[in-house]
């Protein structure tokens, strides 16, 4: 027990149990659906998970600092449309340029949120509730309610979803999924082994202390929103590649799925704890449910009801079980302290 407690934190148990739950869900659906264990199923789930994951990474950073970004769906919609119409108008635009346009536009929109929250001192829920409406409104006005169509896009974008990055056995890992995993790895490393990454945790864990000991609190919050915007921009591009047809309604409601992924993934809604990796697990859990229920056909309408229940369970288990575990861990720590005090 002592060994366990020294080397594993309660939060990690939380992630492990989610991983286990995903395995159980996959086994469960596998027993119900014929031909479930095929690379087609995998790719379907992976394609939907990839987009949610990329946005969820940014959302995790924001939630860690005790804020929330509800505008991610509108940002992804805007960037998908804008990048799409740019690519449609200029077929000779290099791929990297299109991606960079999407990311840059997303970053600008995120930066506006960030400035209002960090320097304007407006609560993030208000800022992003507002920008959710504003960005979507700008998109509708800008587009004149026209649609980007698959036909108008250059071939490389249309083919992108089927581009395979690497083949393991008979599983094709698509480039977009690989990109999402790469981003998770990058940010997981960044938030665990970079001092600027640790500051997100410090900020959300105790904002007053962060200010008093001289951490650049405003810059931390700003960069969380900036990164969330940029990653939503990237997700917008991925959305464009995946669906091709982009209406003004693109990615509407994405924020709900993303916040759900983050919460299910064990990121504390009040900041300070949780990991990027956990958020990805949350996204995988949601993606698996969504795609598998879709395959079960009869149950398509059950998806939201189950998702709602899942969020509730995730939060409830955090509150009830995680607190117990933490208390257990803390009591051991306390014993160490009292022993230390008795010694001198």
């Amino acid at each position: 027990m002592r060994w366990l407690q020294r080397n594993i934190r309660p939060e990690q148990i939380r992630e492990l149990s989610l991983l286990l739950l995903i395995v159980v869900a996959v086994l469960f659906f596998g027993s119900l659906i014929d031909g479930y264990y095929t690379s087609r199923t995998f790719n379907r789930i992976a394609a939907s998970v990839a987009i949610i994951t990329v946005v969820a990474v940014g959302q995790t950073l924001v939630v860690l600092t005790r804020s929330i970004d509800l505008s991610v769906g509108s940002i992804a919609g805007c960037t998908a449309y804008f990048a799409g119409s740019m690519a449609a108008a200029h077929h000779d635009l290099p791929p990297l340029a299109v991606v960079l346009i999407a990311v840059a536009l997303g970053a600008v929109m995120g930066a506006i949120n960030g400035v209002l929250v960090a320097w304007g001192r407006v609560p993030s829920i208000i800022v992003t509730l507002g920008s959710l409406a504003i960005y979507r409104g700008i998109l509708i006005d800008y587009s004149g309610a026209k649609t980007v169509t698959t036909d108008s896009l250059p071939a490389w974008i249309v083919d992108l979803p089927r581009l395979t990055f690497v083949t393991i056995g008979n599983l094709d890992i698509r480039a977009m999924f690989a990109l999402a995993v790469a981003i998770v790895v990058l940010f997981q490393i960044g938030t665990s082994f970079l001092n600027v990454g640790r500051q997100f945790y410090a900020m959300g864990s105790n904002p007053d202390a962060a200010h008093l000991i001289g951490l650049p609190t405003r810059r931390i919050v700003f960069s969380a929103f900036l990164l969330s915007g940029a990653l939503s921009g990237l997700a917008g591009f991925m959305f464009l590649a995946r669906f091709g047809n982009i209406t003004v309604e693109a990615a509407r409601g994405l924020e709900l799925q993303v916040v759900a992924a983050v919460v299910v993934g064990g990121v504390n809604i009040f900041g300070g704890s949780g990991t990027v990796f956990g958020a990805m697990l949350g996204a995988i859990m949601i993606g698996t449910l969504e795609q598998s229920l879709f395959r079960l056909q009869i149950s398509e309408f059950w998806r939201d009801a189950i998702l709602g229940l899942l969020i509730l369970l995730a939060v409830a288990s955090d509150a009830v079980i995680l607190d117990r575990l933490r208390a257990l861990w803390a009591r051991t720590d306390l014993k160490l302290v009292t022993r230390a005090e008795a010694e001198p």
Partner: peptide
Amino acid sequence: LLFPDLNVAENIFICHQNRGAITDW
């Protein structure tokens, strides 16, 4: 003024400004 989610070691060093870019756990 501690950070409840950070461990004791990190709490001690969080405000060091010259600790470089990489967290030396």
